[in-house]
Design a protein around this nucleic acid. Structure first.
Lengths: 148, 148
DNA sequence: TGATAGTTGCAACAAATTTGCAAGTTGATC
DNA sequence: GATCAACTTGCAAATTTGTTGCAACTATCA
């Protein structure tokens, strides 16, 4: 769950890069920025249409691809806890991981410094230059532990 | 890349659970256990057919789903560096991560202890009981760094 | 306001995965 | 080893997810 009420930065980042702000792109980045849960392409399509904006699946996919290539959003699979859909969220600088409950499907975000240790280790051991780290955890949440 | 020449344990784990060992399942788990790279469903299908076993895509998917539900294999997307295929590997106990080069597509595995620190942190902060931790890293490998 | 280069929607395609069901197989039992 | 019920498989068709080509449209800048 990306944080609510973030500054709407994506729009200005896009126009800074000379990318046109069409109404389709505006609604999509608005939805992504204000989402309180992770969204997949179909969510975005239906939510945008609910708000009265006409757009097509193709545009959703193209916009997400563009945002991903610009490094502004990240694509997650959330361990395929609910089928094979892909989810999108604003890309944050601080490392955070996703923990999904395999019983109820709830997704929790956690900020941690472990990831930067991991990055250091990778750099030293392999010489790879790291662009993105994605950590996803399958687990059972306290609520579901009690129920069983 | 799962390690070569592991003990063929999957077959006995399956029959212990009362699951029938058909020739289709035998060849599939054999391929997964002896693979030296990550396999996707089509790889498995063609490799099994090369060995003279008749089987259908459907059976590959059904078998992989079963193995995944039993916690015997893991499904990876390897950051979609090569399209949207999913890959499968034997589930290991020791933590290891996948590092993919976004330039040449090469996948490297790395064993690390950072993940157990992370697990401790998650347990303490959230109370979740962890079942699987999956870390995938997008990076640029040393070879590709030189080329640019 | 007009020009133009970038965007969109549509239709068709492609790839990945799933489902229903009849026919075939496994493994326990005799 | 033969029998049989329950489990599995293969096939065909459908579904879901994502992509492509192209004509029509539109945001932006002079």
């Amino acid at each position: 769950m990306p944080k609510r009420n973030q500054q709407p930065e994506l729009a200005s980042k896009l126009s800074d890069k000379g990318i046109r702000l069409t109404k389709q792109r505006r609604i999509l980045i608005d939805l992504i920025e204000s989402a309180n849960q992770h969204l997949h392409p179909s969510d975005l399509l239906y939510q945008a249409r609910e708000k009265g904006v006409k757009l097509d699946r193709t545009t959703v996919y193209r916009t997400l691809t563009m945002l991903k290539e610009l490094g502004l959003v990240e694509e997650l699979d959330l361990l395929h806890l609910n089928g094979h859909e892909h989810y999108y969220e604003i890309r944050h600088d601080r490392g955070h991981i996703h923990i999904g409950c395999i019983s109820c499907g709830k997704i929790l975000e956690l900020h941690t410094d472990c990831l930067s240790d991991l990055c250091d280790e990778i750099r030293q051991k392999t010489g790879f230059i790291i662009k993105t780290v994605r950590t996803e955890v399958a687990a059972v949440c306290p609520d579901c532990q009690r129920k069983t």
